[in-house]
Design a binder for these strands. Sequence first.
DNA 1: GTATTCTTTAATGTATACGTTAGTCAATAC
DNA 2: GTATTGACTAACGTATACATTAAAGAATAC
Lengths: 227, 227
Amino acid sequence: MTPAPDKTKTLSNTHRAAEAIRQRIFSGDLPPGSDHLETELADELGMSRTPVREAVLVLETQGLLTVRPRKGVRILPVSPDDMEEIYEVLTALESLAAGRAAERGYSAEDLADLAQAIDAMDTAIAAKDREAWAKADDAFHRELVRLGGNSRSIEIVDRLADQVRRARLVTLNVRPLPVKSNEDHRAVMEAIARGDAEVAVARHTRHRDEARQVLVALLKRLGLRKI
Amino acid sequence: MTPAPDKTKTLSNTHRAAEAIRQRIFSGDLPPGSDHLETELADELGMSRTPVREAVLVLETQGLLTVRPRKGVRILPVSPDDMEEIYEVLTALESLAAGRAAERGYSAEDLADLAQAIDAMDTAIAAKDREAWAKADDAFHRELVRLGGNSRSIEIVDRLADQVRRARLVTLNVRPLPVKSNEDHRAVMEAIARGDAEVAVARHTRHRDEARQVLVALLKRLGLRKI
DNA sequence: GTATTCTTTAATGTATACGTTAGTCAATAC
DNA sequence: GTATTGACTAACGTATACATTAAAGAATAC
């Protein structure tokens, strides 16, 4: 997700277009590899080409699509190799955040959201509710980076997490329920709580590396169809 | 720097505008904190508002400026705190790259550019040529990330390095010549050459952390004027 | 003198029109 | 039958015109 540029009310059409297209990509409505003319998108969104063009330019810099001059905008596929790259960066930045969070000396109260996300994952796993688990997992990682306090990291991770979410569209119902991963989450949180940056970093790095291996292997096994 | 979108010849005005504005920011021609109307920029660039708007939108997502609805585009200042954030992310991603590069088992030949950058820094320091040193230092860090092989990292680091370059506009001629930093560079390169990822990561992390401390302290000492 | 409201204005956000050009398809030459 | 060339078309890149709106200032009421 990307933060709303205007919290009050009057979103510009450009922002609406960007958000709409982004949603349609994540929902699978604009599938990876598909092409779309600016004119079509504009018609479908009920606006002129101008805001659509502007939105598309932004989404291009965010790596969701490319503009191919007379072929339309192409929704970018995410290959297993891409996902490996994305996870590498995510791992580095989230681990950085875990370390910084530990150094900041947060109180138990400060970590309430983190704890809540962990509980929600436990609940979801008990109920075998994959959607709920994914949502809580997102919340945990997002909150972790927020606690790191580096706004640039937050922004970059947000953008990359978008892509991970796209991958999950495909993998969520195929992969085994990650019953063990909450042990890692708890360990990371506890390390942060007691100010142990080293363990927080090490544990989180291992956690993400393992997740990456599972996901990439799964994507490769699922075969050629790009996400 | 940002890779040219079209290597052949026919750059669109949008790309030209983006590049021109970027250059004007780095050259100090558009100072941090200054405001500029789209119309003015368009006139100065000899084109209409449309490509300028598109360029500005992209630069906004890259964190160089913000569009403030009836006030013009504001060139963003880079505070010491901002620089601290930027260095944190740079450190994490460059260190990641150093580790991955070590794992890849590069030959001495593969590391030639790295070695060349190091030599250039030695030469520059002997000649007390700060400009040359900065250029070679840039080349070293850029090549390091390239060797890491993660294209997302490369892109992110490129964007952040832009900001570091802006800071150097102010600090380059004030700070002491970093006579000792090439020891770190050499150690990192040697660790990569012998495939020692752990040392490569640790040494580079330390190197960047020290550089960050020097730069941030200097920026704070130089005082209130934002970059 | 101050505060409120109205008016004005200027800059943006959006639509649209137009020129350019790449891609397509057909026709013709071989 | 194949390949090359040419015209055509449709999509994009850019310019421009228009609508919208927020900021600034003036005027008036108190």
